[in-house]
Design a protein around this nucleic acid. Structure first.
Lengths: 112, 112
DNA sequence: CACTGATATGCCTTGACAGGAATATTCCTG
DNA sequence: CAGGAATATTCCTGTCAAGGCATATCAGTG
């Protein structure tokens, strides 16, 4: 999960992902459209690949990079635990919890 | 959006977000539970706050930090454009697109 | 095989950023 | 207003990662 965020934290890498959202592309195609140098694109793709966000398919001497569903679904699953934050009236619950966080008055009462 | 990923890319920051998922906490409480030093926690919270991922509520000299729904919803919205990747048979469409990526779109007959 | 196109890798330099420690700031209470 | 608790900020330092550039690798073709 951490690798996912790290990978997407880099602006160029995020751009690549957004570009591949439309369709898979060879390295050269990515470099051309994003005005980046080929070596950097390869490096970024390496990181994205390690994070499981993209996958490759060799065609001749080209390598077609496309998004990898599982990688992004992982992100979606992570978000699942946070969806209750919006859409629901969560602020009221927030207020309730506000009281509970009072340092948890334990037997170690030190009210100097 | 980029700020969001950058903020969550840092392991400790991600931990903080996951911790605050359960309930809002004061700076000291966060530091204590995550075994981090207070200054670092404050710095991380600053970044998370700038990214719109957390919000503060002052209580006495404490500052209660909690998740900010809008920030995480933004992430969710971003993912929206990628959800079609899974759940649906997208691989077949992938195959179709494979042909179109032939290095150029000559305007020869591709009527359908 | 030599040649070429497409991509990956290695080395180097530089800038950003996280942690550590000290200090400043803010707010409460007597 | 002094004192202290909770938090923020500053300065410093080391690390790591991204870009530039050269080069290696690899597949296809004549």
């Amino acid at each position: 999960m951490n690798a996912t965020f790290s990978a997407l934290a880099e602006p160029n890498r995020l751009q690549i992902v957004e570009l591949l959202r439309d369709r898979p592309l060879p390295v050269g195609g990515i470099a051309e459209r994003l005005r980046m140098r080929q070596p950097q694109v390869s490096k970024h793709l390496r990181v994205l690949s390690d994070a499981g966000l993209v996958q490759v398919r060799p065609v001749a001497q080209q390598r077609i990079y496309g998004l990898r569903a599982e990688g992004l679904k992982e992100l979606d699953d992570w978000l699942e635990g946070y969806r209750r934050l919006w859409g629901e009236r969560f602020e009221q619950l927030d207020d309730v919890l506000r009281d509970l966080q009072q340092k948890k008055g334990r037997s170690d009462g030190h009210r100097k």
